[in-house]
Structures are given as structure tokens and as C-alpha cells.
Amino acid sequence: MEVFIAQLLNGLSLGSMYVLLVLGFNLMLLVAKIIQFAYPHLVVLSMYVCWGMLKYTSNVFLVILASIGSCIAINIATEPIFRLLAKRHGLDINVSFVVSMSMTLVITDIMSHLLNYGFPIAFPSKWIGKSVIGFGLITFSSGQAYALFGGIAAVLAFFYLLYRTRQGRVLRAISENSLLSSIIGIPTIKTRVISYAIAGLLGGLTAIMLSKMLGSASPALGDFVGMKIIATSIVAGLGNLKGGLVCGLLLGITESMAIGYLPGSWSNAISFMMMLIVMLIKPEGLFGIKA
């Protein structure tokens, strides 16, 4: 029972990270009509930025600002590439996948060639913090607490923005019909850039919380997280935000349970196996495609 509770807490905090990334990924899919496969890699890259900043400064505010800022900036910097792509090929999400997958190769190679000589990075213990609750097998580190509560707050803020504010209404309008949106005077390019910025903000927040929760990162982390995020989006139904919320949490919990009860190196394969089975049985996803 203790293992169960411990892994449930683990799973919830891990799951809320997945949810944030699935939301950011789906937002760009809905508004900008692209598959940004490199999005999780950008998040890992801003974890590296966070790690680098920690070497030079102990000012927490500055570190957070730098890693979130870098994630937003790099994400927005990819926008002109996708805009040019749309001009050449029309809004073809398959071609955007080909391009964003090339971006992942570039990002991963930069991390494995230039940063920390390609070795995994470890965050200082001061940054990670001590465990908040220690009760038998149940330990809840401050990193996990940040991830869980920060994740919930960010998800609530995201849905508030999307469904209760003027900007959110505009984003939804473009995702439904971008031509009609421009006919009624909504600037489409500006709004698309805003969607990249929001996704970048979510990614930056996730990077901070992941660095506190995992305590380390490696060049291969991007590929791992990337495949999980996108497989989750498909299992939930591409572009389905509420489905992504449910499936992201489910993935986190499943994975933690697999870690708790099964030999280590197979746990990833098991979550992939489950997603594969769902994808084969229901290629359109559990909650239906919305994109």
C-alpha cells in the first residue's frame, strides 16, 4: 500500500508535466496547424539553460527567467520557418513533421556535442531541495511538490486563458477557421506567434519543474519525452485538449506504477506498448480528433 501511494504521488506529479507539454503541443497544432515534434527537445534545451545559469548565479529569479525566456524565444524563432513552409506546401502537417523532426536532430546533436561534452547533466542539490514528507517508503520531494502544484496551477491558468478571456477566444477562433477569423479582422500571423509564445511559456515552466523533479537531464531525454508526448496526443485524439489532460495524467501514473512494480529498464517499453495497442485499436484516439 505504501508503494502504491508513493507511486501515485510520483505519477501525479510526472503526469502533470506530461499534461503541460501535451497542451502546449496541441495548442500549436490547433492554432498554427503544425506538428512541432521538436517541442519537448526545446524543453530539454531550456533545462540545459537552467543548469548553465545555475553555474554562474544563485539568483533563483534570474535562473527561472532565463530558462523560460529561452524556451519562449527559441519556440518563436521557429515560427518563420513554419510560415515559409506553409507558403510552399500549404498547411500540410506531415511536412511540418518532417521539418520539426530535423530540428530535433539538430537540437539533440548540439546537446550531445557541445554541452557538458555530451554527458548527462546533474542539477545541484540546493536547486532540487529536500524531501518534504518522509514516511516509510513515501517520500515527497520539494521538486515533486513544485511539479504537482505548479502543474495544476499552470493547467488551470491555461484553460482559464483559453475559455474565459478575449485572447483565448481569438485563439479558438483561428483554430476553428483561420480564413473566417481574418475576414472579421483578427490578425492571424500575430495570433499564431502568440500561440508559439504560450507553448514556449508552458515548456519553460515544465523545464523548471522537471529539473527540480528529475534532478538531471541528458541529450536523449528529448527523444524520450518527445515520443511520449506525441503518442499521448494521438492516444487522446490529436488536438483534443481535454483528452490530453486525462491521458497525460494516466501516462504519468501508469509509468510510475510500472517503475514501482516492474524491473526498471522495461517500464518505458510498457507504457509505449500500452499506447501502441490503443493506437492500433483506435487510430483516431480515445477522445476523438479535434484538429
Partner: peptide
């Protein structure tokens, strides 16, 4: 000119 600008 861009559609949104014309609309505005």
C-alpha cells in the same frame, strides 16, 4: 493588403 487589415 492583409485581409485582417482590410477588415479593420
Amino acid at each position: 493588403v492583409g485581409t485582417d487589415k482590410i477588415a479593420n
